[in-house]
Nucleic acid binder design. Structure first.
Length: 195
DNA sequence: AGCACGATTAACT
DNA sequence: GTTAATCGTGCTC
């Protein structure tokens, strides 16, 4: 069986909405101590530029959101709610701040270790949230600003067959409680529902 | 220096 | 359905 290729940088250097849609069905991989932990991406959200008032880039370039201005395919990992990490892949042209948030994956490899990291919660809630998948894959701020296309990268995405539109739906982004319209209800969340 | 709140989660009623 | 946990960040004074 062939080793899947990683998505090329050109994949990420496009419209964030297209990248967020097409990342559904692709395989998120975390390598740690030579072991693989992975899952199929099943939920994403797009955050697009300084004009998007739901995006961290809205308040300009700061140490926290610096990675969003970097090259496509780099990681933007940030800390929130005093306890949670979130994983994003940077998109579009360098110096344009945009990224796709990983909101859920369907676990594939490394389930046993994921269960331990997730406190033996039921499998159905192992990686069905942005902070949950970071916990299961042990993703934290040390990975912020890393290039997922570097050969040594411990986090990257492997190419898998595209998902048909029939299995995809969109909705407003989650958790933007105090974000004004029209940004609050932009249908920039993408969900892959198999079956 | 102080403060309000967050791209959430888990544990409640 | 509601709410506590928990603290870095950005904004105001």
């Amino acid at each position: 069986m062939n080793t899947p290729e990683r998505l090329p940088r050109k994949f990420y250097a496009r419209s964030t909405l297209v990248v967020a849609r097409e990342l559904l069905g692709q395989r998120l991989v975390r390598i740690e101590d030579g072991r693989r932990y992975s899952g199929i991406i099943s939920e994403t959200e797009a955050y697009i530029g300084m004009d998007d008032l739901g995006c961290h880039a809205r308040s300009g370039r700061t140490p926290r959101n610096e990675s969003m201005w970097g090259p496509a395919g780099y990681l933007y990992v940030y800390f929130t709610y005093g306890m949670h990490w979130m994983l994003n892949f940077v998109t579009e042209a360098e110096s344009f701040p945009a990224a796709v948030l990983m909101r859920a994956i369907i676990p594939q490899e490394g389930l046993a270790e994921m269960r331990i990291r997730r406190k033996n919660k039921p499998d159905r809630v192992l990686t069905n949230g942005p902070a949950k998948l970071c916990q299961a894959l042990n993703i934290n701020g040390k990975l912020d600003g890393a290039d997922s296309l570097n050969n040594q990268s411990p986090v990257f995405i492997e190419k898998m067959p595209a998902i048909e539109d029939q299995y995809v739906h969109t909705s407003p982004r989650i958790g933007l409680n105090t974000v004004p319209e029209p940004w609050k209800n932009k249908p920039w969340r993408f969900v892959y529902s198999p079956d």
